[in-house]
Design a protein around this nucleic acid. Structure first.
Lengths: 208, 208
DNA sequence: GTGGATGCAATGCAACTGCATTGCTAAAGA
DNA sequence: TCTTTAGCAATGCAGTTGCATTGCATCCAC
């Protein structure tokens, strides 16, 4: 796992991004580097759990020096926070892509199904993200983040607007999805079982 | 957090358990000690997260020496595993107590409501347990435990036997409960919201 | 008593942690 | 050309980790 001095040669970095952002200082794309490191962190977290995430482990996984990790994240916590934001961003993108795939004016039921299945850890990559998200969930469970509350509230509101029923139905659907995701991740439900449960519920919700 | 040498005096232990189990060796109740330590571990985990669980922290929280912790658990992992089993056991007891409170021949719907609400982290102690369970969930998410799968399957079967619908309904209800618990723990849902969502679902399930 | 097992405390140790510091390289501005 | 600065690597350090080892005190069987 430890790099030898001979195999170093960190990474061929794409340069010349000077023109992209006003005031961009020197030569490497800061954001890109941070993403690179965050990706490595998520790989470590997905494979070995969050406890295994350390500066040196992440650096090794990213195939860079520990010093570079420190250069881009002043503290470990800053790195963690950034990685968490990347996970969120990715799941957001997944949802948007799934919805875009539906075309214009989809039926609410189809939209909801696309939304929920996009958030379920059904295929390989989303399973990885799910594991990381779960790890973070436990990590932050001690000091609950008020931001999450607002996000969830918004989500519930959105779902409720698509549903014939009330807010309780929406909250239930969201929680159901979360629980299904958990069980799929834990291997207790197969993806098929989860989808069956989800569809059963959608059927109920749209037949009132 | 560190004990001073003067305030040591470990703990007044109940002795004379020789008669309880055949072949019990000397004087202290092994199982009781292990429980004491596991309790401390869970306090630490609930308050500061699983990363904060170390031999020394747990020992300090239990007000015993680190050596004693090592005496009762040969490895940290053994200690963790035992603590996990205690959490499970406690939630099991909660469920049984809730069901017993219903008296004889309860209606399936009441039984299910009692079962699910008993597993939700609604009051203080169950919230603590929930946090610990969540931490363990993430901890073991990396190497999924096959035992969990069987347990869940059994649970789904039991729920299904109480429900007019099929297995998908049962799986959904269980996942819903899990998700609600997660959101209550994270502070995204209030206990009232969670209960409302749960009751709404029970209503749906028993009105087919 | 004596011998052996048990319960426990203390100490030590190598590995690892996050982070501060230092110093080098190379590119950009003067 | 010279100075400055960003980008990075290396090293060091104090603190913590899990665990092995050692030693002592108590109890039981004999």
């Amino acid at each position: 796992m430890i790099r030898t001095a001979s195999s170093r040669r960190p990474v061929p970095v794409s340069r010349n991004r000077r023109e992209s952002i006003a005031g961009m200082p020197k030569k490497v794309d800061h954001a890109e580097r941070r993403r690179l490191i965050a990706d490595a962190l998520m790989r470590v977290a997905a494979e070995q759990g969050l406890e295994a995430v350390s500066l040196r482990h992440v650096a090794a996984a990213a195939d860079v020096s520990a010093g570079m990790v420190q250069h881009y994240f002043r503290t470990k916590d800053e790195m963690m926070t950034f990685a968490l934001s990347v996970v969120k961003e990715r799941s957001q993108q997944r949802v948007e892509a799934a919805i875009a795939r539906l075309g214009d004016d989809p039926r609410p039921r189809d939209l909801l199904r696309a939304l929920t299945t996009a958030l379920l850890p059904l295929d390989g990559p989303s399973r990885e993200d799910g594991r990381v998200a779960l790890a973070f969930l436990a990590y932050t469970a001690v000091r609950p983040q008020p931001a999450l509350r607002a996000e969830t509230e918004q989500m519930v509101g959105f779902i409720a607007s698509l549903l014939p029923g009330g807010e309780a139905d929406a909250a239930g659907l969201l929680a159901l999805m979360e629980g299904l995701g958990l069980y799929v991740l834990g291997g207790q439900y197969t993806p098929e079982q989860a989808l069956a449960a989800l569809d059963t519920q959608l059927e109920k919700l749209f037949n009132a």
